[in-house]
Design a protein around this nucleic acid. Sequence first.
DNA 1: CTAAGTTGGTTACGTTTGTGACTACCTTTT
DNA 2: AAAAGGTAGTCACAAACGTAACCAACTTAG
Lengths: 148, 148
Amino acid sequence: MRLTLEDFLPYRLSRLSEAVSDDIRPIYKSAFGLNRPEWRVLVALADIGPATATDLGRHSAQHKTKVSRAVRALELRRWVRRETDPDDRRSEFLTLTSMGQSAYAKLVEPMRTREQTLLERLDPEDRAAFERGLRAMEKAVGVLEVRG
Amino acid sequence: MRLTLEDFLPYRLSRLSEAVSDDIRPIYKSAFGLNRPEWRVLVALADIGPATATDLGRHSAQHKTKVSRAVRALELRRWVRRETDPDDRRSEFLTLTSMGQSAYAKLVEPMRTREQTLLERLDPEDRAAFERGLRAMEKAVGVLEVRG
DNA sequence: CTAAGTTGGTTACGTTTGTGACTACCTTTT
DNA sequence: AAAAGGTAGTCACAAACGTAACCAACTTAG
């Protein structure tokens, strides 16, 4: 029995994911010196903020130590503000400051453009197949967030 | 302008890739204590061996330091044997020993089974869409190996 | 034939990462 | 109301990683 790396799904996904990641990293890296966990927390906060670190971890698929470090880094930049939850003093509500919002605003457009550029290299049918297949696989693997 | 993490391609790919990776890792991890670079070198060698470290790096999409470390680890297990290329004494031909081949043989079936199990959670049409879209995206991003 | 440049592979070093321990706080049990 | 157990977040530590420097060997230019 054999197994060709080139046809092995986990390998293909990892390779593709890294290539795409390498493609977009320069945008948040060169503009602000962010790393990936920081970029993700920034977006997650814009998505669902104000939110706790635990919420952000779930929404950005990141381990709590990654979130903790990213939040501290963003706090030092004054992009994020903390406020202890009065109802549960273990938790902290995290909010984007106006500086954070403006950095986010500066990044969103080039990021989406780059994503679009990638997708537009596929003809419409391949693109539709990709979107359909990807969502189906996400569902099958159970990575989709439980909504509501 | 906004950007929803849940719909952002690089994020989705990374999350999916990690989930799939987490799903299969136990197989090579618990059976032999291998890590991912080692597992990949093992498969790459079975795929294209005998081969040099550079070849393996290209074929398994891994940085040369990762390959170097993985090869050394496999050599210590006596799964891999080195032989200097007489025509270019910087290079070394790497070969799977019979121990290496037998370890590989023990892993291939459960790995492919697990992959199949994943794919079979998709109905045939979704699966076809996934395969088509994934290949198209690999091509678009340029991660496919140049054959010949 | 030699100097300059390139390539295969390893190693040292600083950074990033996950694990597990830990503190502080909340909830449940009795 | 005290004890036991669970959760939010941080931190120390060790493992894994990429970058850059490095050595040895090969190639090319002059």
